[in-house]
Amino acid sequence: MNLALPERKSLLVVGGTSDIAKATALTFAEKGWNVTISGRELPVARAEAANLELRVPGSVITAVALDILDTASFAPFLDSLPVLPDAVLLAVGLLGDQALAERHIDHATLVMRSNFEGPCLLLGLMASRFQDRGSGTIIGISSVAGDRGRASNYVYGAAKAGLSAFLSGLRNRLAARGVHVLTVKPGFVRTKMTAGMALPAALTAEPRELALAIYAAVEKRRNVIYVRPAWWLVMMIIRSIPEGLFKKLRL
């Protein structure tokens, strides 16, 4: 008797060359998913895809070009995909420089567009296609920085707050349409983006730890996760500080 093999699920990773994206792509590939890695520079994305195929024998990894700032390309990009993926991971983002953003509108614009405008417009198009199909998973990597505006990174934080609100709205809209929306708030992660920072060990995750948490949350259809549980308490305290006192703090 011939038993048909189960069809492999597929994941599209947007911003697929970051440390978090690579770790998550590896985790899903190890679990038997096909993975498509997108990147602004196609040769770099192809190199990452080739490396991933070597690390996971038998995996099916492809690479495509996508610039999160080129919003006009989003619909044609989605139309060009051979199949609509089962899940999309939004892993693109730009921390930027707060001091620079305060004085240079071009830099502030770049941070806001990279973390909010481009990601939300792309996920909005993907959401409608998932809704029409009646299934799909949207995974958005937001940030604890969006839980409350702080002087040290409020331009980045404001953009991530907008992303979190957008994901919440998608979740509310699509809950009855068979589409799962997951918001991920990693906190500190040891990556190239945080290299050189003095990070507290108890609040700092490794990329692989984050990737495993994302996969588990997708399997359990969780709504919002803080990768290190301590972050939930930390941010609850920060959100609870009265505004009069908050203005006097340097956070």
Rank of each mutant, 00 (worst) to 15 (best):
M1Q: 14
L3R: 13
L11H: 10
V13Y: 01
I20D: 08
A23Y: 01
L26A: 09
G32R: 14
W33L: 05
G39I: 07
R40F: 03
E48W: 08
A49F: 00
A50C: 07
V56S: 05
V64S: 09
I68T: 01
A72Y: 05
F74L: 06
L78M: 13
D79Y: 12
S80E: 09
S80I: 08
S80R: 12
L81T: 00
V83H: 14
A87Q: 01
G93I: 13
G96Q: 12
G96I: 12
G96L: 13
Q98A: 04
L100W: 15
A101T: 07
H104L: 12
S114G: 02
E117V: 11
P119T: 04
L121C: 05
L123N: 00
G124F: 01
L125V: 03
Q131Y: 03
D132S: 15
I139W: 03
G140M: 07
D147F: 06
R150A: 10
N153G: 10
Y156S: 06
S164M: 06
S164I: 06
F166M: 02
S168C: 03
G169H: 14
L170S: 09
R171M: 11
R177I: 08
G178Y: 08
V179C: 09
V181E: 15
K192L: 11
A205D: 11
A205N: 09
L212C: 00
A213F: 09
N223I: 01
V224H: 07
L233Q: 11
I237L: 14
E243Q: 13
